[in-house]
Computed example of a mutant assay.
Amino acid sequence: MRKFLASIAVSLLITGCTFPGVHKIDIPQGNVVTQEMVDQLKPGMTRNQVRYIMGTPLVTDTFSPDRWDYIYSQQKGGEERTQKNLSLFFSDNSLQRISGDYRPGGAAQ
């Protein structure tokens, strides 16, 4: 009887996180980037102006200091993880080009 109860207790502990109705948390990571933030970016802006709008980039490459990468991933309550990227390219301390999953003016489209 004791072995039976112990095996039930162990199986409940192992499967404890898979019971239906158990709350699973959202896991956001990286820089939060919104379309409204990207819409404010204009070519020719200085690095300080871009940093004011976007915040400090998550990734700054020491071999390519004129490129800033903003990476945001989120996993909502046990669903698949989604990730969005935004890369900003500078030349002579001014914003030249934007690439990634966001486009300026995308909110109006």
Rank of each mutant, 00 (worst) to 15 (best):
F63D: 15
L58H: 03
K76A: 02
E80D: 08
R67Q: 12
P57G: 11
T56M: 08
E79Y: 01
W68D: 03
L58Q: 09
Y72R: 11
T60K: 15
K76G: 01
G77H: 02
D66V: 05
S64Y: 04
Q74C: 08
F63Q: 15
G77P: 00
G78Q: 01
Q74V: 11
E79F: 03
T60C: 12
R67P: 03
Q83D: 15
Q74L: 12
T82W: 00
R81V: 11
Q74W: 03
V59R: 15
E79R: 07
Y72P: 11
E80I: 02
S73A: 09
E80K: 03
I71V: 15
M54R: 05
R81S: 10
E80M: 05
E79W: 03
V59I: 13
D69L: 14
D66W: 03
P65C: 05
K76L: 02
M54L: 08
D69I: 14
Y72D: 12
Q83W: 11
P57S: 13
P65A: 10
P57T: 13
V59E: 10
P57E: 13
P65M: 04
Q83K: 14
T62G: 11
D66L: 09
Y70T: 08
T82V: 14
P65I: 07
T82N: 06
W68A: 07
E79A: 09
V59H: 07
S64Q: 14
W68R: 06
S73R: 12
E79L: 09
Y70E: 06
L58F: 00
K76M: 03
V59F: 04
Y72S: 09
T60D: 13
T82G: 08
I71S: 14
S73H: 04
D69K: 14
E80S: 04
W68C: 06
D69A: 13
R81K: 14
K76Q: 02
P65W: 01
F63W: 12
P57M: 14
I71L: 15
I71H: 11
S73N: 12
G77M: 02
Y72W: 10
D66K: 04
G55S: 09
Y72C: 10
Q75R: 07
Q74K: 10
Q74N: 12
G55H: 05
G78E: 01
D66R: 05
V59P: 07
Q74F: 02
G77Q: 07
T56K: 08
R81F: 00
P57H: 10
T82H: 04
T82C: 08
T82I: 11
G77F: 00
V59G: 04
W68Q: 05
F63H: 14
R67S: 10
E80H: 01
D61L: 09
Q83P: 15
E80V: 06
Q74M: 12
F63T: 13
G78A: 03
G77E: 02
D66P: 03
T56Y: 00
T60E: 15
F63P: 09
V59D: 04
T62N: 13
T62A: 14
G55R: 07
T56R: 05
Y70H: 06
R81A: 09
Q83T: 15
G55M: 09
Q83I: 14
F63E: 15
